[in-house]
Amino acid sequence: MRTRPTLSWTNQGPSLPRTTALTDVVPIVARGGVLVLSGAGLSTESGIPDYRGEGGSLRKHTPMTYEEFTTSEAGRQRYWARSHVGWRTIARAHPNAGHRAVTTLHPLLAGVITQNVDGLHQAAGSPDVVELHGGLDRVICLDCGMLTPRLDLDRRLREANPDFRATTDEINPDGDVFLPEHQVRGFEVVPCEECGGVLKPDVVFFGENVPRPRVEQCYGLVDNARSLLVLGSSLTVMSGLRFVRRAATAGIPVVIINRGETRGDPHASIRVDLPLGKSLTELAEVVLQSGNGDLPGR
């Protein structure tokens, strides 16, 4: 029978789990049944910055909201012009050591839920990834619901805007970038080829709800897991935090590996503050070779 992890209390409320060594994670992962919940911090080593970490894009960029996209033609023009530039960086990104380590650990995993929309888990070879917030590699028509590949839309946008030459070095996890207004002005947005409707990337914008069936699927994965391993997520928004809370309430150990504190720390059994790529590679090597033992330099 599972028992809920206990938290010590101070006069200020529950104390955070101490930051521990990666060796403490080994026996939990070696048991198997590990559900991975990944965030933008896992993709930073692939050249895609996160939202809230040091230098995160929310410090200088306001993401597109669902309300603005669906109600403002100018907002859609601005988004697609900027996303047309940003998509090139997302499409060129390659999985890093952290993604590859998660794939290596696949025999011990109960599943992977990612809050990322970059498709790098799948590119690294992880099967059956649940994309909580959707994927930038697809486009959906808000009128007829037809899904089409982003590559097709990219081609159509290039054909409709042959003189568009904007570039930027600032990319966001959702593929959006900053462009000055004069570069956005005049950008031609193309409609759905099937019905002429409004096209939107098949991702969950800020202010938009994750589809309920997808949430229930993730709850089912949590309920059947032996542990929850959070990788590179600040858990600032409820979208991911609810699964941490669900696991903790059920007595399922929660392990968080992230640079810096997270909103889920009070629910964690173990919290590790280390770079993800190198740490996950070492973790996978030790777990799969011996199932226990010491990690180098930890």
Rank of each mutant, 00 (worst) to 15 (best):
R246L: 02
T44K: 11
M238H: 14
L22Q: 03
R31A: 06
D137P: 08
M238L: 12
V272I: 02
D174G: 07
D50G: 07
P27M: 09
L288S: 13
V117Q: 03
R76L: 04
G240Q: 00
V29D: 11
Q115E: 12
P201G: 09
A160S: 10
N292I: 00
R185E: 15
G33F: 08
G41F: 06
G75P: 13
V272C: 02
T167C: 11
E181A: 15
L132K: 05
H106T: 06
E73F: 07
G86L: 00
P173E: 10
R245P: 01
L109F: 00
Q289D: 08
L120K: 09
D294K: 04
T20Y: 01
A21P: 02
S15H: 12
V189T: 10
S72T: 09
R2Q: 00
R52D: 11
G119E: 09
R100Q: 09
A81D: 10
Q77E: 11
R82A: 14
E282M: 03
G39L: 11
R88Y: 02
V287P: 14
N209P: 02
F206P: 08
I90C: 01
K278W: 09
L147G: 07
R271F: 02
C141H: 09
S83L: 10
R158C: 07
G145E: 13
G264V: 10
G251W: 04
V36S: 07
D294R: 14
N161C: 13
C195M: 14
R31Q: 09
Q122A: 15
S8I: 04
T114E: 04
V26E: 12
T262C: 13
P107N: 14
R214T: 02
R59T: 09
V244G: 08
